[in-house]
Amino acid sequence: ETLRLGDFQSTTHIVSVEGTTRWMKAVEEATKGEITFEHFPSEQATKAAALLDAVNHGILDAALIGTIYHGESLPMNSVVGLPGFYGSAVTGTAALQAMLADGPLREELLESGVVPIFGFVLPPYQVLAKKRLGGPADWSNLNIRTAGSTQAMTARSLGAVGVSIPGPEVYTAVETGRLDGILFPLASVPGYNLQEVVTHISRNGSFGGYSFVMVVHRDRFEGLPEAVRTAMLEAGKDVAAHVAKAQDDSIEDLAGKWTGQGIDVYEFTEDELAAQRSAMADVSADWLTRIGRGEETAKAVLEQYRMLTSD
């Protein structure tokens, strides 16, 4: 049986190489070719924001969705976007996997017609800029590129201005100084070659997270033989842990490479981190009232997430 799987990364992106592609191969091997995949990378099948709908309507059988694009259907999943929580992809992924196994994050995915197979996170967003940004005082009135409302709020909570600029224009905007800095996942920096236009990159900040979930159409999944479903979930477990570790490692490598190119890859001091965390606490509070509507479920989700991500 052949499953159509769509995602929005290019096939060279680490998330595709160590995550999506690796999982498809593992499933194909574990089922001895009983299941094969047709892969539609880089939004070939549909735009990133439409992937969940595409699986729902049977345009695709499976997709690696970025939950941030589906805030409306998956409000609880957006908890991962909050700043100040996980410190590495490994920690964040372990927390996400636990929450996808059982609880509101899983429930809302099932409700929207898909089964979560596995999930993982990007390493926490860092700040890239043309000067060293530390405590909130350094951020005052800077134009920081952010993606989505949570990040914009993060920038604002630090005293900066959250600027929305589409992906294709970020490089030029940083180069010319339209942007003073960017919040970005380090793994995606090479794709946009942003290291060419900044001089300082933080590496132990936590300016928000990002989660991916591999989903399969619910009826389609339930129609698969038991052995196949188990194989998918087992492979998912391994791949989630693997891609998390691979991303953390690649950041080590990238940091080394960038330092060699004369970029200041720096660590915040404990004081700076504490000051940032206390400023960014507003963002979680806002999430609770706006997206969580102050409900008990949201409070519980936030509490559980806090517990799972603290070391």
Partner: peptide, 14 residues
């Protein structure tokens, strides 16, 4: 009917 909202700078009715 579902009152879908995009949580942006403000709440945008979709």
């Amino acid at each position: 009917t579902r009152g879908e909202i995009e949580f942006g700078v403000i709440d945008w009715p979709l």
